[in-house]
Design a protein around this nucleic acid. Structure first.
Lengths: 107, 107
DNA sequence: TGAAACCAGTTTGTATTGCAAACTAGTTTT
DNA sequence: AAAACTAGTTTGCAATACAAACTGGTTTCA
């Protein structure tokens, strides 16, 4: 059976855009909802605004999410949606990572 | 049942010393053997010497591996072993990461 | 025998990050 | 109309990660 140590090079192929913990947290949340507001995302991830803002911008530049700017009454609200590309990247990441973990219950 | 998106903050608790792909590759290989030579490690991970050297030094500083310097005939050979601390950190990482992945075969 | 090529690994310089503090722009409160 | 608050962005700095250049020694071969 294939063990992770059989092909450690695969580890280096992980998509760093997804692998970075802050962004993985963001994508994980986005994957579970249609659209997520900035402040909600901030609260559930525990990121501060600056980091959330800049990581979101990187994910957007990578095409993994899109930003929706709107107003609720007169106050501005920014929300995010994961794109199909982002969802695919996250799925691929999950696959790769799963392949890399040893089977449950190994010594 | 607990889904990863229930607690995205946990993602930020991943041990970055282990999480970084080059180091994860190194630890993964070390975990499967008693002692591993520098050049062998370089070949199986695909890292260049510089990066392998510096990542190994970081892992050593973190207490996750130890370096063994020896001679084979008259040429110097550097080898590494994972420490118990390193093994524990890797196991913890596996646990955390597994908890974070969605169940296999989800839409 | 001595210059050239090679081996094993380290150090160095640079470019990219990730992070938090400071800032912007506007709104509500008092 | 000042003060305080809201929502988010930008900036500056510190910590990476990476590859190229280097070190110290060994073997080859002319």
């Amino acid at each position: 059976m294939a063990k992770p140590e059989d092909n450690p090079k695969a580890i280096l192929d992980l998509d760093r855009m997804v692998h970075e913990p802050a962004r993985l947290a963001i994508l994980t949340v986005l994957a579970s909802a249609k659209e997520v507001a900035f402040l909600f995302l901030q609260r559930v991830t525990g990121l501060n605004k600056g980091n959330l803002s800049s990581h979101a911008q990187k994910l957007e530049a990578a095409g993994y999410l899109e930003t929706v700017k709107a107003f609720q009454g007169r106050i501005p609200v920014t929300s995010f949606r994961i794109t199909e590309e982002g969802r695919a990247a996250l799925r691929l990441y999950h696959h790769q990572m799963r392949a890399l973990l040893p089977k449950e219950g190994k010594p």
